[in-house]
Amino acid sequence: MCANLGGVGEKGVTEGGVIEDFARLFGAELSLDERFVVKRGNRYFLLDEKLKDSTDKREGWLYSGTYLGKVEGQSFHPSFPLLFVIAEKAKNRITVDDKSAWLFVCGRDIFKEGILKIEGSRRKGAYTLVFNRHGECIGYGKIAKNLDKLKSGLAVKNLLDIGDFLRRERTAVQEA
């Protein structure tokens, strides 16, 4: 459910360039305005001028603007709004059929048989965004086997999908 960045990376507006490095995993270059990227605890948020002004003067907020993701140890856990921003620029993209898209949203991996289109890297270990046939980003994963040679079977390991919202709700209900 996260990308291990190993603490290395080019400099960016976030500490150690953590968000920019994450975007580069998909072949996307992000240009975040450092004035408006705010770290709160281990979470990053992108604010606009009005929100920045308001939150600068009033401490104690929990969430503001666009949530970008959080850092836990050496791992970065992206938010979905960040994935959608990256999706506009990403080179590594896989488009899947309806059945595979639904299984992916349920937390399953992607099999070669369900892939409609591959763009960008096809090599094992590369990160790729996953799209449904409507062109909507539904999560991301890691290519499990070299896709050029693969005829069938496991192709992309699920690392994060939008079904996560439902799993969070279930966890919250269980904890209540």
Binding site: T55, W61, L62, G65, T66, Y67
Partner: peptide
């Protein structure tokens, strides 16, 4: 508030600041 913040993320709300 956790549920609220999940909603804001899911619905791509950009103009909200949350306080407990």
């Amino acid at each position: 508030l956790e549920a609220l913040m999940n909603q804001l993320e899911r619905c791509r709300v950009k103009n909200t600041v949350v306080y407990q």
